[in-house]
């Protein structure tokens, strides 16, 4: 069972309190974009995932805690979290991830 740092509670809590919510930073097209979009592009938004082997930006929901969604960088080979951050924050750069790993 993973230990997950909730950036809202600012605490490490066991995985059982959280629900995984898929890849992060996939932005839902707005109504104007939707109207313009091809079926193929819309399908990409809905279904295509990086499924990366390595540092993965992903979403978690602190369902049995503060009820907030947040993002995380977790390595999918080691399952270790490098960092968690709030939904409003940008995806960390590779450099930021590297720095966080060395902390």
């Amino acid at each position: 069972m993973l230990l997950i740092h909730c950036p809202h509670c600012n605490e490490e809590r066991p995985e059982l309190e959280f629900a995984y919510a898929g890849e992060a930073h996939i932005v839902r097209p707005n109504e104007a974009e939707q109207a313009e979009m091809s079926d193929a592009d819309w399908s990409k938004f809905m279904f295509i995932r990086d499924n990366i082997r390595g540092d993965h930006a992903e979403r978690w929901w602190h369902a049995h805690g503060c009820n907030m969604f947040f993002n995380a960088i977790r390595n999918t080979v080691t399952d270790k979290f490098t960092m968690t951050y709030k939904v409003c924050q940008k995806r960390p750069t590779e450099h930021q991830i590297k720095v966080a790993k060395n902390d």
């Binding site: 629900a19 919510a21 932005v27 839902r28 979403r59 929901w61 369902a63 009820n67 907030m68 969604f69 939904v87 409003c88």
Partner: peptide, 13 residues
Amino acid sequence: YRHMEDYLQTEFT
């Protein structure tokens, strides 16, 4: 409930 929270917190912020 989860579906609504998800959209509210992450899409229709």
